[in-house]
């Protein structure tokens, strides 16, 4: 019995542990940025400045 009980406990524990290994567990992924978020690096930020930067290039980079 104690053995059975032990097995049951181990099984329960294992199940619990397995459940704990959900999708939010950190597994090392090579080549993926690990640093702080940069608000100005996003798609939206880049979209917002795109026209401004184009105008700036036409003003500052061309020979006029």
């Amino acid at each position: 019995m104690p053995t059975k009980a032990m097995l049951a406990l181990v099984a329960t524990m294992s199940l619990f542990l397995l459940i704990a290994c959900g999708s939010d567990v950190t597994i090392y992924e090579a080549g993926v940025y690990k640093g702080k978020h940069d608000e100005t690096a996003t798609e939206e930020a880049a979209q917002r400045r795109q026209d401004q930067l184009r105008d700036r290039a036409m003003t500052g980079m061309t020979d006029r």
Binding site: A30, G31, V32, Y33, K34, G35, K36, D38, T40, A41, T42, E43, A45, A46, Q47, R49, Q50, L53
Partner: peptide, 15 residues
């Protein structure tokens, strides 16, 4: 340590 990232408009930066 993967400290590099690229902005949406292609600028390579790092932390």
């Amino acid at each position: 340590v993967d400290c590099f990232y690229t902005t949406a408009d292609g600028i390579v930066l790092h932390d």
